[in-house]
């Protein structure tokens, strides 16, 4: 029998388990209160978003991996993860070139945090997805294309 967490949550009564997670310190409400860089999130193009983040034109790094589907199963919720082996990571941002506002997410990582984040982004069309990492005061970047298709006609 394969155990799935969705089943545990169902049988455990959703809120109760979430409450336990919060009590155990897995979910920290204060983490949500980090400063909101509104300008960067409304900057528009990739270039302008990078500028608003103070990243300029970052070099490409092979030490950053983007974990995202080659073809999105649902453009409304595309799972995008970023991890890196770079030391002293301060923040990780996800930018989607073809979105009206390229910057989709920024994670501020407290010192000593494992640099491995994941979220879901909305994508209206096929686009390059960029992971921007600030490590030891320096910005570095990686890119992967994620295709958004109309679907159907397979097989």
């Amino acid at each position: 029998m394969i155990k799935q967490r969705r089943e545990v949550l169902k049988t455990g009564g959703g809120l109760g388990v979430l409450g336990l997670l919060a009590a155990a310190g897995v979910i920290k409400p204060e983490l949500a209160l980090a400063a909101w860089n509104e300008g960067a999130f409304k900057a528009g193009t990739l270039e302008k978003s990078l500028a608003a983040l103070g990243a300029g034109k970052p070099a490409t790094s092979g030490d950053i991996s983007i974990n995202a589907p080659d073809i999105a199963e649902n453009g409304a919720v595309v799972p995008i993860g970023v991890s890196t082996t770079l030391p002293k990571v301060e923040s990780i941002s996800i930018l989607i070139e073809k979105n009206p506002d390229a910057l989709a997410a920024t994670f501020k990582l407290p010192e000593g945090t494992e640099a491995n984040v994941q979220t879901r982004c909305k994508m209206g069309q096929t686009s390059n997805v960029y992971a921007l990492v600030k490590a030891d005061g320096k910005f570095l970047m990686a890119m992967k294309e994620v295709k958004v298709t109309l679907g159907g006609c397979g097989g």
Binding site: R6, P69, D70, I71, A72, E73, N74, P79, T149, G151, G152, C153, G154, G155
Partner: peptide, 19 residues
Amino acid sequence: FPYTPIANPRWQVPNWSFG
């Protein structure tokens, strides 16, 4: 098949992800 929820209806497998 990695693209099942794209080539075929996603509503038939709403809780499963492939890739």
